[in-house]
């Protein structure tokens, strides 16, 4: 079966105002298959968020190719990109800030549904259902982001991300702002969603123990490159690269 997401030789160069070049992502290739949970680990500044931003087309690719569900979206824009977002969603690093401070959480979720052609009424009902699925009471639909806790915003963000029934969910440090119990609940939710919708995850994370538990495969990034790749058990138990070894030793 063709992968949900295929990334080939991805490269991103940032140009500073002074004209200096910074290669944040260099020759990164990987694939994510349906229902698979792939983690990206690596030290701070290794380019994980940049990969997520490239894959989601929030940032322009310098070189390489991104294929989502068999469609090349490397330069997609407008309607085509919107179509891609029906299949691919992201949960952002800062949950509360990923909602418009002037809109309620319910508005944020419903907006997504409305943009993809649901009627106002349908969107409202679906929003309540999604909140319930993500373990939030219906009254959260009427709350503003600053009236909910980080974990609650995170659940709402997940509710929004799964509203369109995407095939791929990208989570950028989705659990690092949460305490251990809430984190466990969110992970249980993600596992349940994966079973229900055969979602594939691209899971960006600092927590190596969590990756070992939760993910099938892991990519290790260092200075914009993927230096090691394999089954998460395998890579974390028996790292081949010195860098991976150091990364794992530093946290375990």
């Amino acid at each position: 079966m063709a992968p949900v997401l295929q990334v080939e030789h991805l490269k991103k160069i940032f140009f500073s105002d002074a004209g200096e070049e910074l290669t944040a992502v260099n020759d990164v290739s990987f694939a994510v298959h349906a229902g698979e949970k792939v983690a990206i680990i690596g030290e701070s500044g290794s380019g994980k968020t940049t990969v997520a931003r490239l894959v989601t087309r929030l940032s322009d690719v310098t070189e390489g190719r991104i294929v989502l569900m068999g469609k090349d979206i490397t330069r997609a824009s407008g309607r085509k990109l919107r179509g891609a977002y029906a299949n691919m969603q992201m949960v952002f690093q800062s949950p509360a800030e990923s909602f418009d401070p002037r809109c309620t959480l319910g508005d944020g979720i419903a907006e997504c549904l409305r943009n993809f052609g649901r009627s106002r009424k349908e969107a409202e009902q679906e929003t309540l259902r999604l909140l319930r699925v993500c373990g939030l009471a219906a009254d959260f639909a009427g709350r503003y982001p600053h009236e909910a806790s980080g974990g609650q915003c995170q659940r709402a963000a997940i509710a929004r991300a799964i509203a369109l029934k995407p095939k791929l969910l990208i989570l950028d440090e989705a659990t690092s702002a949460l305490d251990v119990t809430v984190q466990a609940e969110i992970l249980a939710l993600l596992t349940q969603l994966q079973r229900e919708f055969s979602l594939a995850y691209l899971f960006i994370c600092h927590d190596i123990a969590l990756v070992q538990d939760f993910c099938d495969r892991v990519l290790v990034m260092h200075e914009g490159r993927v230096v090691e790749e394999g089954a998460s058990e395998e890579v974390i138990r028996r790292p081949k690269q010195a860098y991976t070894k150091r990364l794992i030793d530093s946290v375990l």
Binding site: L58, Y85, M90, C112, N115
Partner: peptide, 14 residues
């Protein structure tokens, strides 16, 4: 620059 703008873009806003 704020994350919610990116989120809104991904929510399909033109």
């Amino acid at each position: 620059e704020l994350p919610y703008m990116q989120a809104a873009r991904m929510a399909g806003c033109g």
